[in-house]
Design a protein around this nucleic acid. Structure first.
Lengths: 193, 193
DNA sequence: ACGATGCGTTTAGAATTATCAACACTCTTA
DNA sequence: TAAGAGTGTTGATAATTCTAAACGCATCGT
């Protein structure tokens, strides 16, 4: 995990760091990767420390053990800045009215295809009669409390554990007429904000 | 020129053939590339014959002499199947109403995006021996007169109706050594000015 | 015809990289 | 705490790659 803290500027030409990152991202030890690739663990150690510059054939053998192509190895962005895990406190809050809290997962990620929100609807919260519409698709699942969801002509009260999935360009609305708050986790693609 | 006839299936893992193709496409000899890269011509010869598997450091030094990044070297498609030259008869006609004829250059080329220029080359005009290079792709078609076009190691005299399409970072040159002016319609992407 | 020039290839030896086995270190577990 | 299995690192040696200089073969100009 420690190596994942490395700066990503190193990735461009620092083959050793790049290999180490890739290996760790794939959850392999030097010995396990060496065994799969048919090379020695020492060789991988030396390469990762940039004490040698591997031949293409060696590097290819190693990457085959992951497996990963040479093109992908040099092309892909293995930057650790794209975190996998986010603590609850790391979700970024997005203002949306007074009674509604939207907390986004992985706000800093660029060029993504998916957006996930942790939504809290206080009693009386309502996205409004002027139904929401945008491109893409979205889905969600109610965690606690209950919520009335309107999609086009359909309307349903969803309780904890219930879920939905619809095309976002169908007009939709969320409201919580109950005394208890409602918590919902939703995802939509592509991101709407 | 002969090596350009190689099949493109060879490109995937055959580093030697891939290097030779790239070198020839860029119009360099083994010795010239070796001089630029700071390696010996013998090394390049051995690599191109796949008699050795170069170290990353060596390969990088060589590619720096072109110049070309490792990522591009493994990623880019240098397949000769993407023709550079198209005879007038090879332009594909696209129907567009009754009075309009559209003749497209390089119909088979995928994933492109470009913009177009109308160019006139007076007698003696020459973009110069210090070959042009920039990012993107460009193509063109000669309207009247004729023009000598050099792209990497390839050179051809294009007459009215003939055309070209190539990646702009391959050094290129246009000249009109004739007595009559030459009119050319060209397109490039992204726009260089 | 001829030498001069330029091309890719080849070979012996210097330089670099990979292997094998041992080492130091951190965990886990008895 | 001590044994055992896990990890990454290191040193001597074997294997591979790179260099330097020559070779054979074309092409060009005189």
């Amino acid at each position: 995990m420690a190596a994942l803290e490395q700066a990503d500027e190193a990735l461009s030409e620092d083959i050793g760091t790049r290999l180490r990152m890739v290996r760790q991202i794939y959850g392999l030890t030097q010995r396990e990767l060496a065994r799969r690739a048919g090379v020695t663990n020492g060789a991988i150690s030396l390469i990762e420390q940039n004490r040698v510059s591997p031949s293409i054939s060696s590097l290819k053998k190693i990457l085959d053990g992951i497996p990963l192509s040479l093109a992908d190895f040099f092309t892909l962005n293995f930057s650790p800045s794209e975190n996998v895990f986010y603590a609850a406190s790391e979700l970024t809050e997005i203002a949306f009215g007074q009674n509604i809290s939207l907390r986004m997962v992985g706000r800093s990620i660029k060029d993504r295809a998916l957006q996930m929100l942790y939504e809290t609807y206080q009693p009386g919260a309502d996205t409004g009669e002027a139904m929401l519409r945008h491109h893409g698709e979205e889905c969600g699942i109610v965690i606690s409390g209950s919520l009335i969801v309107t999609v086009g002509a359909q309307e349903k009260e969803l309780a904890a554990g219930d879920a939905y999935y619809f095309r976002s360009d169908i007009p939709h609305r969320f409201r919580n007429p109950h005394a208890a708050p409602c918590i919902l986790v939703s995802a939509n693609s592509p991101p709407s904000f």
